[in-house]
C-alpha cells in the first residue's frame, strides 16, 4: 500500500453468546475472527459478504459501538481500544457512521434542525446563531433545501432521510466514515443520487471510508479495495479490479457469478451454486467454505488456510493459491 493508512486493524475478534439459561451453557458465535486490514488515507475499503458473515459487527467494532474481544484498532496513530471517557468521545468526532435504514436511524420526534444541532452542542463546537448557520450549511452540503430544518423525518422520502443521516454524520467534520449498507434500503432510481453525494463529499472533505454492502455492483463503483468475508473471516482482500475481474478465492468467484447483471446475455448463465450458508454457531472445520467449494482439496477439510499476501496487495486465504499458507 502506497499511502499511509489512516486506520489499521490487526487480529480483531468478537464473540457473542446466544441462548443459554440457568442450566444450559450459552452457545458462542464467532462473529468476527482474526480480521486484519488497513484503510489508506482518502481511500475507500469495501466490506462484502452475505448475511451473518460478520461485516456489520466488524464495522461497529471500529467505532466501539460493539466492544471487540481481541485485536488492535489504530486510528490516526491512536489505539482505539484503550480509549475511554473524553478520549473516546473525541474519537467519535473524527469517525462517524451512516446507517442502512433511513427510517430507523432518525429519531422520529426530533426535527431535522434538532437532529443536526445536537452533536454540535454536545461537543461544544458551536453556540447560538453559529449552530443554525452550521445546520444550514450541512443541509446545503447534502442537497436539501434550508426549509427542511424545522420539519420531522416522516415528512421526507427515503432518499432524503438518508441525506439527513449523512448530514448528521458530517456536522462533526469527521475524517473517517463507516457506511453500513447506506443505499440498500433505497429505490434503484434514488440509490445513484446518494452514491453520487457520498462520492462528492469524500472528494471535498478528503474522507476515508469503510463501505459495508452486500451489493457487489455498488461496491465496485464506490470502493478502491474490497475485503470479502465469509463466516466471520476475511477470505480475500484486493484492489477493486482484481476482486471483480480476477477473483481468486472460490467463494469470491461464486459471489461474483451469482451477482445479477442487467444484461440479457446473462440469461442462460445462472450459476449452479452449491449448498447453504452454514450457521455461524457451528462453522465447518478447516476452511469454512470447503463444504460448498467446487474445488476443495482433501486438506481443506482439515487445515485452515491463512490470509497470504500474493502480489500487488492481493491477499487470499485459500490453499489453491498459496499452498504453503498453513496457519
Amino acid at each position: 500500500m502506497s499511502a499511509k493508512p489512516i486506520l489499521s486493524v490487526e487480529g480483531l475478534g468478537k464473540r457473542f453468546e446466544v441462548g443459554g439459561g440457568l442450566l444450559r451453557r450459552p452457545a458462542q458465535v464467532h462473529a468476527v475472527v482474526d480480521a486484519s486490514f488497513e484503510v489508506a488515507e482518502r481511500a475507500c475499503l469495501g466490506l462484502v459478504g452475505e448475511s451473518g458473515c460478520g461485516k456489520s459487527t466488524l464495522a461497529r467494532c471500529l467505532l466501539r459501538l460493539v466492544e471487540p474481544d481481541e485485536g488492535r484498532i489504530v486510528f490516526e496513530g491512536e489505539d482505539v481500544r484503550s480509549l475511554d471517557g473524553p478520549a473516546l468521545r473525541r474519537l467519535r468526532r473524527r469517525m462517524q457512521m451512516v446507517f442502512q435504514d433511513p427510517y430507523a436511524s432518525l429519531n422520529p420526534r426530533r426535527t431535522v434542525r434538532q437532529t443536526l444541532a445536537e452533536p454540535l452542542v454536545v461537543h461544544g463546537l458551536a453556540t447560538g446563531e453559529a449552530v443554525d448557520a452550521r445546520v444550514e450549511a450541512a443541509l446545503a452540503e447534502v442537497g436539501l433545501p434550508p426549509d427542511s430544518a424545522p420539519r420531522f423525518p416522516h415528512e421526507f422520502s427515503g432518499g432524503q432521510r438518508q441525506r439527513i443521516g449523512i448530514a448528521r454524520a458530517l456536522v462533526l467534520e469527521p475524517r473517517f466514515i463507516v457506511a453500513d449498507e447506506p443505499v440498500s434500503a433505497l429505490d434503484v432510481s434514488v440509490q445513484a443520487q446518494v452514491l453520487k453525494l457520498l462520492e462528492a463529499l469524500r472528494e471535498r472533505h478528503g474522507l476515508s471510508m469503510l463501505f459495508v454492502s452486500h451489493d457487489l455492483g455498488v461496491v465496485r463503483h464506490v470502493c478502491d479495495r474490497v475485503a470479502v468475508m465469509y463466516l466471520g473471516r476475511v477470505v480475500e482482500e484486493a484492489p477493486v479490479p482484481d476482486i471483480f475481474d480476477r477473483p481468486l478465492h472460490p467463494y469470491t468467484r461464486m459471489l461474483r457469478a451469482a451477482s445479477p447483471v442487467p444484461d440479457a446475455r446473462a440469461r442462460f448463465s445462472l450459476p449452479r451454486v452449491e449448498g447453504e450458508i452454514p450457521s455461524a454457531m457451528d462453522p465447518p472445520g478447516g476452511c469454512a467454505f470447503h463444504p460448498r467449494c467446487p474445488s476443495a482439496l482433501a486438506r481443506c477439510a482439515k487445515e485452515r488456510p491463512a490470509l497470504a499476501d500474493l502480489r500487488g496487495g492481493h491477499r487470499v486465504a485459500c490453499f489453491l493459491h498459496s499452498p504453503e499458507a498453513a496457519p
Binding site: R60, L63, L65, L88, R89, R90, R92, R93, Q96, M97, F99, Q100, D101, A104, S105, L106, N107, E118, P119, V122, H123, G165, R168, L172
Partner: peptide, 17 residues
C-alpha cells in the same frame, strides 16, 4: 437497539442524554 440511538452513541452522546 434502534439505529438512531446507536447513531447517538456514535456521535458521542452520554447515556443520560
Amino acid at each position: 437497539g434502534r439505529d438512531f440511538v446507536e447513531a447517538g452513541r456514535a456521535l458521542g452522546f452520554s447515556d443520560l442524554r
